[in-house]
């Protein structure tokens, strides 16, 4: 068995990160308070990790051992769980996540995560003052939106570069025309095959007569 000190350290770090972030989103903290006493048991399959998230007041406590009642149990990979929590319209079955117990807690957490609005400027302002923090915030926000836009454009841009510039693959339109021709050829071949079969049957009948 691994040393419990490491696991306790991981849980403590995760707990501190969650609660520190919550400090700067009062609206989410207030909504969390309504879930006081609820417990979500997580059974992560990749990476392999089990823990319980216990909501006490407006804080979340991460526990490795929990012997009390569990409101909702969730099992799946970490990536699936993050997707599930970030997207209120996502369904557990589509992401390969299994749930037992009350699904209301999950739904509430999904809505909370989609509305999460952490004011990262606040802790920075405490350290360096309001005006510098706001300036840095603006720069980071611009950089963030540029990065986000670039990332969303990245797959299309990469595909264009590979086919148009490097000519490693055919352009999409050419590929689609080729695929259509191939499908047409396949159908024509099947039709021809059917005709040949029909002719064979007719010849066989005549020979028998």
């Amino acid at each position: 068995m691994s040393d419990p000190t490491y696991r306790a350290g991981f849980d403590a770090a995760l707990e501190t990160a969650i609660n520190t972030a919550l400090q700067y989103d009062p609206a989410t903290r207030a909504r969390l308070q309504e879930l006081d006493g609820k417990v979500m048991a997580l059974d992560l399959t990749a990476p392999k990790l089990q823990c319980c998230l216990c909501i006490e007041g407006d804080q979340v406590f991460v526990r490795q051992h929990w012997e009390g009642d569990v409101t909702t149990s969730i099992s799946g990979s970490a990536i699936s769980l993050v997707r599930l929590l970030k997207d209120p319209d996502a369904t557990p079955a589509a992401l390969g996540v299994s749930i037992s117990g009350s699904s209301a807690l999950l739904a509430e957490l999904q809505w909370m995560m989609s509305d999460l609005d952490i004011d990262w400027e606040a802790p920075l302002a405490q350290l360096i003052g309001d005006i510098p923090a706001h300036s840095i915030g603006n720069v980071l926000r611009s950089a963030g939106s540029w990065l986000s836009a670039s990332l969303s454009r990245a797959p299309v841009a990469a595909a264009e570069t590979i086919s148009e510039e490097w000519q490693l693959t055919p352009p999409q339109a050419q590929f689609e025309a080729f695929a259509d021709d191939l499908a047409e050829l396949s159908l024509a071949t099947e039709r021809l095959e059917a005709r040949v079969r029909l002719l064979q049957e007719q010849f066989s009948r005549r020979e028998a007569e």
Binding site: T5, A8, A12, Q64
Partner: peptide
Amino acid sequence: GIHRLWKRFTIELSGAR
């Protein structure tokens, strides 16, 4: 600071309610 982690584990195993 590790004594805090030792105590944290103790509280978990206490099963306090």
